[in-house]
Design a protein around this nucleic acid. Sequence first.
DNA 1: GAAACAGTTTATGTATACATTACTCCGTGA
DNA 2: TCACGGAGTAATGTATACATAAACTGTTTC
Lengths: 251, 251
Amino acid sequence: MAAAAGTEERGGSPQTIRAQLAVREMLMAGEIRPGERVSELAIVERSGASRTPVRAALMALADEGLLDPIPTGGYAARSFSVREVLDAIELRGTLEGLAARFAAERGASAARLADMRATLTQLDAVVDALQCNGDAFEDYVALNGRFHAQIAAAADSAVLERQIERAQSLPFASPNAFVAAQSAQKRQSLLFAQEHHRCVFDAISQRQGTRAESLMREHSRLAAQSFALSARSGEALAHVPGAALIRLTAI
Amino acid sequence: MAAAAGTEERGGSPQTIRAQLAVREMLMAGEIRPGERVSELAIVERSGASRTPVRAALMALADEGLLDPIPTGGYAARSFSVREVLDAIELRGTLEGLAARFAAERGASAARLADMRATLTQLDAVVDALQCNGDAFEDYVALNGRFHAQIAAAADSAVLERQIERAQSLPFASPNAFVAAQSAQKRQSLLFAQEHHRCVFDAISQRQGTRAESLMREHSRLAAQSFALSARSGEALAHVPGAALIRLTAI
DNA sequence: GAAACAGTTTATGTATACATTACTCCGTGA
DNA sequence: TCACGGAGTAATGTATACATAAACTGTTTC
């Protein structure tokens, strides 16, 4: 379900999608371990689709970064180091920073700004609720993702939006989603994050491109720090298993 | 040949590569016009490969941004506006700016720095030669591409390097390659570009991350201006045909 | 006992046949 | 003349059969 939120309008044929989901499930369930070869036949048996759409699914997943092509043929499940995760977070922040700049310089429409403001208001409510219980965390993830997507869209650049989508599709773009709600410290960082969101929004609506960009990058640095902290405290493994990485977006 | 320089180690099966080349050739030759549907059967007849590898090739090209998926199935040749080209150039500059920062902050190895210095020296010679005749322009494109690739590699981040590769693979990332040599004004801009290259290199070797990043972004702005000028003077079309866009890298 | 070679098995690369869907064209009716 | 509908065609989606290459295992030899 969490995965579905990020892949709402995934293009592709029905059987190809089924095969993709099967691979994701197998990775989540740990049936395929990092570094291990992903056999076409195994996916065929699991998904019920034939080899052609399975091949298409594997190609797409490899392109997404979830699988690694093997030189002699076929694919292997990838594993990720903490440093790679940090790089991915910074990369995403850089791209979204550029988007924030574009949104500010090109002048986001009043309708877009209103939408973003609405999202921020909803986020406020969810963050408040999170101070009491952790149940609303899925909501936070969804709303946060929406806000970031709204900025990417406000940049009004299909080229950039596409690239951001790709950077997000990196499974490790922000894998701290599911740990972030665990400690009080993390909840506190969500308050900071929400403050950042508001600052970025203000900069965009005031057409301050440079400021919007640097704020967005600073925002991503918070996410990186938060993840680095988790990694150091053992909440995240040095080599995070692919299973845990399907989760999406936070901070 | 120019295309081959950028796609040296393209992975994939033999027949898939043949099919990809066939599509590129058909786009270059204008046999497929922007917006037009790319028929699988046409590629099959042209390339000699069967439908399975042709499908794989089309998927890869669509992923590269050269083709657009049609909702009901199949792909269409894309066309690009001047603004999209400018966005792509700025995007690439932003990513390479981040790479320059990483290279500076993480400390590129002496060997890497020596390699970059060697490339710069060769570039100097080629730029000098270009002041006399335009024959050496292919060399300039190749060397320039190598320098940029060296920076991407010096960042020592597989995640970022991969993303840069993708941004470069956008066919319109810097399509002014083949027009840049035409006028004396353009040749002059290559001198500026080379000056930028040296500045970026100095910043990296002096471990000045922020300066390296901003210099790289400024460098990309030069490329954007150069292209914008070409576009305004009619050297580039408002909607550049895909044919002209297979060319790679300049400035 | 270890290493190398050969045979077998299993995997992917490739080709093609079949099914299904979308688009087009022609005809009929208003 | 225009609009609606149906049939035909051509496209992609899917499945499977075949070819080839790689990996593994077993045996043999040093």
